[in-house]
């Protein structure tokens, strides 16, 4: 079974996001793995553990720092890693999906996993676009996947615990909301070991696609309101919150 995981390296939203011109200042932000891709990698490894096969992780190397992410994925159970060497930090989802599709095609996948969304999916997510390019069905918001006899059974979540179960003839693309189990931890020592021994295949970007969006402006949202800030030490903050709650009959 050929299991492929398409990942996205994205600007971290944990820190400030400086803007340059009409887009994020990609030179001065940290890039991290899309959080849903952690779930997606875990779900792929769970499927491999259940039915056997090979997990190949594929990503676009936007800032020449993807190796660490790929090593981590291998330490967590992936078997192979491929990077598309784009060196284009601002590549949008359409470009990445096209390049990834071209790279994935040659792997003859039975199932492709992608994170259900990423915080920088201004032009949509790569998962459904890869499905369109590879002419495979797509289901997103998935929280469990079981594979047997060329068919995947997936649970899709709508909201509030309501969902639906689907059966899909493979191949397909799955947009992972959450893996069936929380992502496993890979010890640093193992990641270091992988970094010394693993090979990462390299492919050139192939194919043209564009979001068709022109960025006119990028800025923090104009706040319509702001919280009344409670200043002071944690103890003072706690006292003021308790006082506030008591004054409203809530404590």
């Amino acid at each position: 079974m050929n299991i492929v995981v398409a990942i996205k390296h994205i600007p971290s939203i944990a820190d400030d996001l400086p803007v340059s011109g009409n887009n994020v200042d990609f030179d001065s932000v940290d890039f991290v793995l899309n959080e849903f891709d952690e779930q997606s990698i875990e779900q792929a490894v769970l499927v491999k553990e259940a039915v056997g096969g090979t997990v190949t992780v594929v990503g676009v190397d936007l800032i020449e720092e993807l190796d660490n992410i790929l090593h981590l994925a291998i330490a967590k159970g992936a078997d192979k890693a491929v990077k598309v060497t784009a060196d284009e930090p601002g590549a949008d989802s359409h470009m990445q999906a096209k390049w990834l599709s071209e790279a994935i095609k040659g792997l003859s996948p039975d199932i492709v996993f992608a994170g259900v969304q990423a915080s920088n999916d201004l032009d949509g997510q790569i998962g459904p676009m890869i499905a369109a390019h590879l002419d495979m069905p797509y289901i997103g918001g998935v929280s469990s996947v079981e594979v047997a006899d060329g068919t995947a059974t997936v649970n899709k979540e709508f909201a509030g615990g309501v969902g639906a179960k689907y059966s899909v003839s493979l191949p397909m693309v799955v947009g992972v909301q959450a893996a069936a189990k929380p992502p496993r931890y890979a010890p640093i020592s193992k990641v270091r070991q992988v970094a010394q021994t693993a090979t990462i295949d390299t492919v050139e970007p192939s194919g043209d696609a564009s979001s068709g969006l022109t960025f006119k402006k990028m800025a923090p949202p104009v706040a319509t309101g702001h919280a009344e800030m409670i200043d002071g030490s944690p103890k003072e903050v706690a006292a003021k919150i308790v006082e506030l709650l008591k004054s409203k009959g809530l404590a």
């Binding site: 068709g212 969006l213 960025f215 006119k216 990028m218 923090p220």
Partner: peptide, 29 residues
């Protein structure tokens, strides 16, 4: 073309997208 995380649309079809976890608003045409 597709815009996601859309929160505003003008009559010229300029769209305001609240991405990056709500930290940035992009205006796209």
């Amino acid at each position: 073309p597709c815009a996601a995380y859309v929160k505003e649309i003008g009559s010229d079809l300029m769209m305001g997208c609240q991405a990056y976890g709500g930290k940035l608003m992009a205006e796209v045409a």
